[in-house]
Amino acid sequence: MNRLFSALIVFLIGIGAATLEVFAVVGRMARFAGTALGRGVTPPWYPARLVEQMAIIGWFSLPVVGLTALFTGAALAQQIYVGGSRFNAESTVPAVTMIAMVRELGPVLAGLMVAGRVSSAMAAELATMRVTEQLDAMVTLRTDLWRYLVAPRLIAATLMMPFLVLIANIIGVLGGYGLAVSRLGFNGATYLETTRRYLEADDVISSLVKAAAFGFVIALSGCYHGFRSSGGAAGVGRATTAAVVTAFILILMLNLIITVLVFGA
């Protein structure tokens, strides 16, 4: 009985410690974001760094985001067709594909793909700079790390994600269109007309708001874990993993929050 009791206590301590850790990480990341934004809005600014990061985050993520959207949009149309045919509702394919894509899958999948590409790369780069004393060297050369390294990444990711998601949404809808027209016997013009008719401004706006929020946490997670790393090559590995996992969780959590706020009312 006593042993059972102590096992229970250990179990509860585990839950308690994990919960405290989650709150601690959220708190530290919030403070990190606050410092970065506070410093980022005051000069000196580094426009060249910003443009570089915009290219890395935006331009070079296009192929992976585009392919993800294309395949998902097509698969979605197929499933909705199969599911809808049970209720004689095959004609809902264009509208439901578009709504699912724009409201949820476009931003979430693009967010996850960019997080996989960008959060990990940022964390690895910054952690390596820590290990190789490049961050110390930068401070010694009187360059503010927040302004030079963190702010451009945060701003670039927040600005570029809406563009990526916009493109993902379009490609996703086109993926559904391609499959529906080529395999399910839809008329192309009717399909596009139906899609257009059901598209609402709120869908697009919420999609882009999500995208900007996801972009911010993608860069935040990468920078935060990169900066906090310690312990050589193993530390770089841990930082990279933590950055991606944190970004994934934050994206999915934020997605739910925004969805409930916008569509739950």
């Binding site: 780069e125 700079m129 190789t132 490049q134 110390d136 060297a137 401070v139 010694t140 009187r142």
Partner: peptide, 17 residues
């Protein structure tokens, strides 16, 4: 204060980007 200093780091610490 730092403007008066130069430092050669052990690993070089050159910015590889």
């Amino acid at each position: 204060m730092r403007a008066r200093f130069g430092m050669l780091f052990q690993s070089g610490a050159l910015f590889d980007s």
